[in-house]
């Protein structure tokens, strides 16, 4: 485990942001931290970053109780991110890299590599004020990863990115994962969860309401529903029940009477109609998200 969050409680004057949150985040994975706005994601991330301390509970980082020295092994791209506007890109990144514990020489050589890699060699002496938003985002990303952290925390990393930069960011994230970096990825955009995450945790109202490996979670939310295409007249039978039907498209969703009863369902179907297609309905994370959040309100 890169991160083990144990029963963390964080209270503010007028509300409880985290009410006993426990999470295990495995090494080398992209871990999605999901939840609606105000669920407590940012509070949890700030505790891992040691910006604030928990009122109760503890956080274990790579086998050790979280300690100020660990900030150098964590990279953090906050949702609200900015740069010093009146500083040159190179100076700014040197400053941020050195704050993360790199020596001057090391910072310089690694930054040069990144500048070449992202094809922004001539930006070093540019003032941040003169950069476009996309350019600033690249700069911020470099600042997050330049010290080669063990754990990368990305809070809504794709917000504000154009498709080209979003793609670049996605490739970089996957590349970092391949090189062994663990990534904690906070978002409420489910399409990026489907695409990138290996495991997820869903936080709602200061509590973890769902956690697990992505496919396993999805299986948990399967409802024995199948999408069928056919010609003919479709009605309920003992093997299945019609959930919805679209007569024009000759398609319908049916729910099996018992799990694993696919063969019975198919034989019942071919008695009624000509069957063209029979496919399991796999729940999207969007549906799971909405369902769980509704249930835990």
């Amino acid at each position: 485990m890169i991160l083990s969050i144990q029963n963390v409680v964080k209270r503010y004057a007028d509300h409880t942001a985290l009410a006993g949150v426990s999470l295990e985040i495995p090494k080398g994975q992209i871990f999605g931290l999901l939840g609606p706005n105000g669920a407590g994601k940012t509070s949890l991330i700030r505790i891992v970053n040691q910006i604030t301390a928990p009122d109760e509970g503890q956080v274990i980082f790579d086998g050790e109780v979280l300690h100020p020295k660990h900030v150098e092994q964590i990279g953090y791209l906050p949702e609200e991110r900015g740069l010093y506007k009146k500083m040159k890109v190179g100076d700014q990144l040197m400053y941020l890299a050195q704050l993360k514990g790199l020596s001057k020489a090391e910072a310089q050589s690694r930054l040069k590599d990144w500048f070449i890699r992202l094809d922004i060699k001539d930006w070093w002496y540019k003032q941040v004020d003169d950069l476009s938003k996309g350019m600033q985002q690249k700069t911020q990303f470099i600042a997050t990863v330049v010290h080669e952290p063990k754990l990368l925390i990305l809070d809504e990393p794709f917000s504000g990115f154009d498709p080209i930069n979003a793609n670049m960011l996605k490739d970089e994230i996957l590349g970092l994962k391949e090189r062994g970096t663990s990534i904690l990825f906070s978002t409420h955009r489910m399409e990026s969860v489907e695409e990138l995450c290996d495991s997820i945790a869903l936080i709602n109202q200061a509590k973890v309401v769902l956690t697990g490996e992505k496919e396993e979670v999805r299986n948990r939310f399967k409802k024995d529903e199948y999408a069928v295409k056919f010609s003919g007249e479709l009605t309920n039978s003992s093997a299945f029940e019609v959930v919805s039907i679209d007569a024009e498209q000759h398609s319908a969703v049916i729910k099996l009477a018992k799990s694993n009863g696919t063969n019975q369902a198919i034989s019942a179907l071919i008695k009624q109609v000509d069957l063209f297609e029979f496919k399991e309905v796999i729940p999207s994370f969007n549906d799971i998200f909405i369902q769980v959040v509704e249930e835990t309100k």
């Binding site: 970053n49 991110r81 900015g82």
Partner: peptide, 15 residues
């Protein structure tokens, strides 16, 4: 300046 330009959160995750 640090607060309004939103660099602050990055900085205080380091110091």
């Amino acid at each position: 300046e640090e607060k309004s330009s939103r660099i602050i959160e990055v900085i205080i995750s380091s110091i």
